[in-house]
Design a protein around this nucleic acid. Structure first.
Lengths: 198, 198
DNA sequence: CCCAGGTGGAACACTTGTGTTCCAATACGT
DNA sequence: ACGTATTGGAACACAAGTGTTCCACCTGGG
């Protein structure tokens, strides 16, 4: 229990709790009100507006930090799904299981055009869809995914189901506990080859 | 050809082209830049900002008019799909065929939180999903739609596929000509009962 | 105890968009 | 050709948000 080592090199201590507090408050606030002002964010974080400006000199800096964080979470979620490992349909199921739990952290992304104006965000999303395109194409070659529909369309439908049900959860129309299972079921049903069905 | 009747009662003449011009310009501009200012909209419409204010006293009035128009188009599209007429799966296909062509007119809805803040918009969308819920429930009772997934989830997945592919068309990832067919195919595959497949 | 660092608040200038008023110019019908 | 109505533009006040500066506080370590 006692700290025999003065400081861990990766986590020397809580060095800047302020930054994290502000990021959390911003993510939470922007999820419901995409136009929240810095004053509101600062108030929600329990710090002064001046302090926010000390950590993030401009609003764009805050949004960028938030976007980068979201990108990183999404990227590691896809990595955790092991896109190249096993049948593509199994991978799709894993993607759902990895990405859906991020709903709360990524909720601020849906209603904020400001965030998507960032080139990093555009690039990151393009990278995500490209990875999924490759995955679906592999599935089509291996016969696990229907080949009568272009991979890009299949990917859009997949992300559409994911986002649609996720919106349903946010609106209280869909039970969170069953969301993952239903998304997987519907996805696999839609992408299965038409001849050889489950 | 010659106008023997001085004016048709339904269309006495182009009474206010200005209003329509502004609405079209606003819809087009807000589709790509949800925060477009009234000055930009006026310039895009080819009229003075003062004129815009004459037709729509406040920005909210413009947005409301735009939202009401969108609601009306969506509602009549659903009416044209005859929700109570025939097997639910056929109806879903008709809904896709009726709604997808509205992409351009309704494109301004996706990136603008301002529009969705209007209670009329919320109510209208709730009405749309409620209609679809009823449709899917009927399909489940009649055995055309899988019953192992709640109707609300099926509806979210359906709208998700629709919006996802529609986004793909906007991004140039999906060919517009085949979008409707693919959406119908993927939708019917996902909602079909698991036991008795196509 | 004193001092340094970080913090919060007040005040300021600046920008952007909105809504309003007024006036000149133009187009339209008579 | 004239008078009227509508338009576009300039100017204004107003509000909200942002970024900056300065200062008081208070907190913890030497």
């Amino acid at each position: 229990m006692s700290g025999s080592i003065r400081s861990l090199p990766t986590t020397p201590a809580p060095p800047e709790p302020v930054r994290e507090v502000v990021l959390r408050a911003a993510a939470a606030l922007l999820a419901t009100d995409s136009g929240a002002s810095l004053a509101e964010i600062a108030a929600a974080a329990g710090v002064g507006r001046t302090t926010v400006h000390r950590v993030f000199p401009t609003r764009g800096d805050l949004l960028t930090a938030l976007a980068l964080e979201a990108v990183e979470r999404l990227t590691s979620a896809l990595a955790a799904a092991r896109l190249d490992d096993g049948p593509a349909t199994d991978v799709l199921a894993r993607v759902v299981e990895e990405v859906l739990p991020l709903s709360d952290e990524l909720a601020f992304l849906d209603s904020g055009p400001e965030v998507w104006d960032l080139p990093q965000m555009r690039d990151a999303w393009w990278s995500v869809t490209a990875s999924l395109d490759t995955l679906v194409q592999r599935g089509q070659l291996e016969g696990d995914i229907r080949g009568d529909i272009p991979a890009e369309v299949v990917v859009e439908a997949f992300t559409g189901i994911l986002l649609g049900v996720w919106n349903g959860v946010r609106d209280g129309r869909v039970a969170p506990a069953t969301a993952t299972r239903h998304v997987v079921t519907l996805t696999l049903a839609s992408v299965a080859p038409p001849t050889r069905q489950v």
